Simulated scan of single mutants.
Amino acid sequence: MLNIFNQDHDLAIPMGIPHVFRFRPPNEKTISELKEHYIWFSDRNSLNDELDSNPEFVKLSTNPEEQKLLYDTIAEHILDPKVKAYFDKHMNTERLQEFASTKIKPFVSSFGIACFTMYTINEKLWDIYSENNKGVCLHFDSSNDPKFFHNILPMFYVSEIKEREYSAISQPNHIIDLFYKKTKNGLMKKNLDF
């Protein structure tokens, strides 16, 4: 009898790095992914947990040094003399902070999200993401396209999502962890819209 955990068997499913798997429900998007050879990325509004990647947990840093750094960085990249003159005359760090804060939600919402796992044997994931075991599990070798898979990181399950201060210039990648945290309760929800 074949045991998929016996990695020495010819028919064994390779698991662990660089192999990743994606559970998909039996629907038109999954069929389209298979036919057209692409990976569907959900927008954050269609995720199964309203706390996932929620921009409401990101606040722009109010540190005066960070605000000045943001102001100076934007000012030095304005090439048009008229725009630069307007910026210098009408913009200050407080107004820039207010304006930049309005851009956090569109920025976070511009990212698509696709979830993967390293192991096929996870009953909860089969139930939730493949519509109660009716769907499929897609297998990818991430080493075949390292550029595409470079952002695959582990998901951290936490009791609550906490607000974070975002320093857009000095720590531009600090916002990334927003996409890799999920509440422990979020995994239990089954009202999925893929």
Rank of each mutant, 00 (worst) to 15 (best):
P172A: 02
T62V: 12
R44Q: 11
T93I: 05
N3D: 14
K190I: 01
A100T: 15
E56Q: 09
S42V: 00
F21E: 10
F148E: 02
L125K: 08
E123D: 12
S143G: 00
F140H: 01
I4Y: 14
M155A: 06
H150E: 15
G16R: 07
I4F: 06
G135R: 02
F107R: 00
S109K: 07
I74D: 13
E94P: 03
Y129I: 01
H150D: 14
S130D: 05
S61V: 00
S101V: 03
E94W: 00
V158P: 09
N6D: 15
E160F: 00
N48H: 00
L60K: 08
F5H: 13
I78R: 04
F41H: 15
F23N: 08
S46L: 05
F116L: 05
D193E: 01
T102N: 04
L192H: 02
D141Q: 01
S167C: 12
F156R: 08
K184G: 11
L138T: 02
A114H: 04
T62G: 09
V58D: 12
D49G: 10
D52Y: 12
K35L: 10
E131N: 04
G112D: 06
M15V: 12
M15N: 06
D141E: 03
I74M: 10
D177S: 10
T120E: 09
E65S: 09
Y71L: 11
L138I: 13
A114I: 06
N144M: 15
I4S: 07
